[in-house]
């Protein structure tokens, strides 16, 4: 792939470096669940639904959050996926979601109860994990689970002295781009709750670059937070 990443200040899909793709949010997409949400950003679309809070199987002090991350076979933009669940990346993400959301969900309000989070990726065009985190937050809100704050996420990358936001699949798999740098922050306080970076190009990050792309990602998170809040208010007022 030797496509131009930046062309006269514009990216492949015509966006500027600090511009997000179009975001679409739908609440209550899955019946038979406590809460559900579909989060679409560009071509990426992720569906999350919640079962619970429900009684734990074992008598314990507090409940737990379980996450099940599935990717539909037809979600990839190139070849069909070989696995839908249980690969290394999704196992890692499931563990991350558990720790991330146990710090945000007020578990003491639902003692002895478990929350099952199911995530289904319907289309993968980059920044899936960020979209998944946003979808989970929305579905938890839709389910009425008490939260400390929004957990919003956005990805960023770095290309020839320029930080990019919300990477597409072709950008995040390009060797020229330092990617994919994923950040999740609490909506109000902008404290970082999750930070993940796995690079395929063998780039080394310098502290200046880290500062720059983190600031860029947080800027994206702010925008996502604004849109999510607006959509939720619209959904509640109707």
């Amino acid at each position: 792939m030797t496509e131009e990443i930046l062309f006269y200040g514009f990216r492949q899909d015509g966006r500027r470096p600090g511009e997000l793709r179009q975001i679409k949010i739908k609440l209550g997409v899955v019946d038979n669940s406590s809460g559900s949400a579909l989060f679409q950003i560009g071509h990426t679309s992720v569906l999350a639904f919640i079962h619970g809070p429900k009684q734990t199987k074992h008598e314990k002090e507090s409940g737990h959050i379980h996450c099940y991350f599935n990717t539909a076979y037809f979600s990839s933009s190139g070849e069909r996926r070989k696995f839908s669940k249980g690969d290394k990346k999704s196992n890692e993400f499931e563990a991350n979601v558990r720790t991330m959301f146990e710090s945000v969900v007020l578990m003491e309000n639902n003692p002895h109860s478990d929350i099952d989070i199911h995530v289904l990726v319907l289309a993968d065009d980059g920044s899936v994990e960020c979209a998944a985190i946003n979808a989970i937050t929305l579905s938890l809100i839709h389910a009425g689970v008490p939260l400390k704050d929004f957990l919003v996420s956005c990805s960023s990358g770095f290309y020839s002295g320029m930080p990019l936001i919300d990477l597409t699949y072709s950008e995040s798999t390009s060797f020229q781009v330092i990617s994919e740098y994923r950040v999740a922050v609490l909506g109000k306080s902008l404290q970082i709750a999750y930070l993940n970076y796995d690079d395929i190009g063998g780039h080394k990050l310098t502290p200046e670059v880290v500062r720059e792309i983190t600031a860029m990602a947080i800027e994206g998170c702010k925008q996502v937070h604004f849109i999510m809040k607006q959509e939720l208010q619209n959904a509640c007022s109707n």
């Binding site: 997409v29 019946d31 071509h43 037809f74 990839s76 319907l122 289309a123 993968d124």
Partner: peptide
């Protein structure tokens, strides 16, 4: 599903989609 060459989703009236099919 925009990323698969053919897809369809089935809803039953007054409820959510419950089957999604994609082809590759």
């Amino acid at each position: 599903c925009t990323l698969s060459p053919g897809s369809a989703q089935l809803n039953i009236e007054l409820s959510s989609p419950h089957i999604i099919c994609g082809c590759k």
